[in-house]
């Protein structure tokens, strides 16, 4: 199978402290890949490396066969809700429209086509009726959908989500996972940092168990085993007794 993201012997360290050690990974299109691991396992650092936000010490990352900086438009990052300034003076529509920014040069004005793409993205996530609301006036689930709509509006092939279900009710969580499944059926590559181990089997096609290095990765059925989980979480986990 052709890979979307291919990572070879990636290592990252901050001031002598090793955060990621010799990571080798292949991420495939049309699949939802979950990333789990304890706090400080380097999950966010892995994202940063893939998104080109940091320079790795060693190793290489190729995305659709090219360098990160050449495929920025194709990747959308859906950040954790916690770090967002929800008081910011902006509306659902404006935030979704941000998805068109990478496609525009500095002097180019957003066209009616750009606006149509944003409107379509809002419709497919069921937030079009809230388009003129200030983002702080939305529920947690609606806020998460705004960011996913922005990823759609960006027409990204690869979507990286960071803990999208924190502060989201169960019903919305189900809706969002369904949307992501539909997207992966269309051939998009979905990655998700996730902490709820009970949902791994139902949500993901592939799983990466990370603890500074790759403990195991591959299809959920064969990879998400007790032994691997225990190794990733330093044997501290008794959730699956």
């Amino acid at each position: 199978m052709e890979t979307t993201i291919s990572i070879k012997s990636l290592s990252v360290s901050y001031e002598e402290k090793i955060v990621l050690k010799d990571v080798n990974l292949s991420i495939f299109p049309g699949r939802i890949t979950g990333i789990v691991g304890p706090n400080g396992a380097g999950k966010s650092t892995l994202y940063k490396a893939i998104l080109g936000l940091l320079e790795p010490n060693t190793g290489s990352i190729s995305i659709q066969g090219r360098k990160v900086h050449d495929v920025r438009k194709k990747m959308a990052y859906v950040p954790q809700k916690d770090g967002v300034n929800w008081q910011f003076p902006t509306t659902v529509y404006d935030v979704v429209l941000m998805g068109r920014f990478p496609h525009k040069r500095i002097f180019q004005i957003l066209s009616s086509e750009d606006h149509q793409i944003a409107v379509d993205a809002m419709h497919s996530l069921g937030i079009h009726e809230f388009r003129n609301r200030q983002i702080g006036a939305l529920s947690g689930g609606q806020q998460q959908r705004v960011f996913i709509a922005r990823a759609l509006c960006q027409q990204a092939d690869i979507i990286l989500l960071d803990e999208p279900f924190v502060g989201v009710d169960v019903k919305t969580e189900q809706q969002i996972i369904q949307i992501l499944k539909n997207l992966s059926d269309e051939g998009k590559t979905i990655m998700m940092i996730h902490h709820d181990l009970t949902k791994v089997r139902t949500y993901f096609d592939d799983i990466i168990l990370l603890n500074k290095e790759i403990i195991a990765d591959g299809p959920v059925e064969s990879t998400f085993t007790k032994a691997n989980i225990s190794e990733a979480f330093n044997g501290k986990l008794t959730l699956f007794s």
């Binding site: 998104l51 990747m75 990052y77 950040p79 300034n85 910011f88 902006t90 935030v95 941000m98 920014f101």
Partner: peptide, 19 residues
Amino acid sequence: FYRSLFATTFQPVVAETMG
């Protein structure tokens, strides 16, 4: 620079991922 100003002010990290 309105678009860049808006994006970097609202969500700097996301803005950076957008190039």
